[in-house]
Design a protein around this nucleic acid. Structure first.
Length: 281
DNA sequence: TTAACTGTTGATAC
DNA sequence: AGTATCAACAGTTA
């Protein structure tokens, strides 16, 4: 489940390898995974890679851009076979099997390297957009949760108007973008706040604690290269390590990192939610 | 075998 | 406007 830390990890890696490369062709293996005209991409070169919310933007030399959303099961894996010939590159062995049955789009560069977009469930997408269409793409997002603009004043004011649970509020990307189910559950545990609390009932102090906790777990996720709990891998095809330090997500029955009580699983708005009923109030 | 479940986000209905 | 529900899917689990 790629959230901000997972997408950021991939974007940082791509930024270190893709700029300057020229696209040779794009192969569409599944039509629903790509929006745009594939014929318009050849000979364009990559200028820059960035991440906003959970979307990766690959800016091209003609001022257009490729946008990628991984949704739940998307992967973006970059393979440069020439490096293997030199020996010792740590690309995981299974990436040799690409394209796989889940590969939906392949972006090939003139130097022979390839970027594979894999997506088991076909919810994710790659879009080729003109520059003026980019603004529209991001209009429904609040600032990234990591942005300094997400202050306690901003966050508390937003929460005060909402009658949804605090868990749903955390997941609302129009308030602050980038938080998904894993980091929402972990942030609530770190802040010792119960996910079923109604957003507007949290005190300013509690809201401040939760906001700080959310920024902390998101930062920790980035430091660990993301959470490989389900299908997520880095752009090198490797697993992240946040799953090894996660607090409650998918740890039903195991001890709470705060108080050692058993972690419980419940449903909030149809989403699996992990909580310690002992210390989260 | 079949049904439920998994999670992101835009569309839809209220 | 804010909230709730559903659809888009394929693969895994019950």
């Amino acid at each position: 489940m790629p959230e901000l830390p997972e997408v950021e990890t991939i974007a940082q890696r791509l930024q270190s390898v893709l700029p300057g490369k020229t696209i040779q062709k794009i192969a569409i293996l599944h039509p629903k995974s790509f929006q745009g005209q594939k014929s318009q991409l050849a000979a364009k070169s990559v200028v820059d890679i960035s991440r906003r919310a959970k979307i990766i933007t690959i800016s091209l030399s003609d001022n257009t851009a490729l946008l990628v959303h991984l949704k739940m099961t998307g992967q973006l894996i970059y393979i440069d076979d020439r490096v293997k010939l030199g020996g010792g590159h740590p690309t995981a062995d299974w990436t040799r099997d690409l394209p796989s049955s889940h590969t939906r789009v392949i972006l090939s560069f003139e130097d022979g390297s390839n970027l594979y977009f894999n997506d088991q469930r076909i919810f994710g997408w790659v879009k080729h957009l003109e520059s003026d269409a980019l603004i529209d793409e991001f209009k429904n997002y609040g600032p990234d949760i990591t942005d300094s603009g997400v202050t306690i004043d901003y966050y508390f004011q937003k929460a005060q108007r909402r009658s949804i649970t605090i868990k749903q509020f955390l997941l609302d990307n129009s308030v602050a973008a980038g938080v998904g189910n894993i980091y929402a559950c972990d942030a609530l545990n770190l802040a010792k706040i119960h996910p079923t609390r109604i957003a507007q009932t949290l005190s300013r102090t509690e809201t401040e604690r939760l906001l700080a906790a959310t920024k902390t777990v998101i930062r920790l996720g980035i430091q660990h290269g993301g959470a490989s709990i389900d299908t997520y891998v880095t752009a090198e095809g490797l697993t992240g390590t946040y799953q090894n330090v996660r607090r409650v997500y998918a740890r039903e029955g195991q001890p709470c990192p705060n108080c050692s009580a058993h972690i419980q699983k419940m449903k909030i708005a149809g989403r699996g939610t992990y909580v310690c009923g002992n210390c989260q109030k």
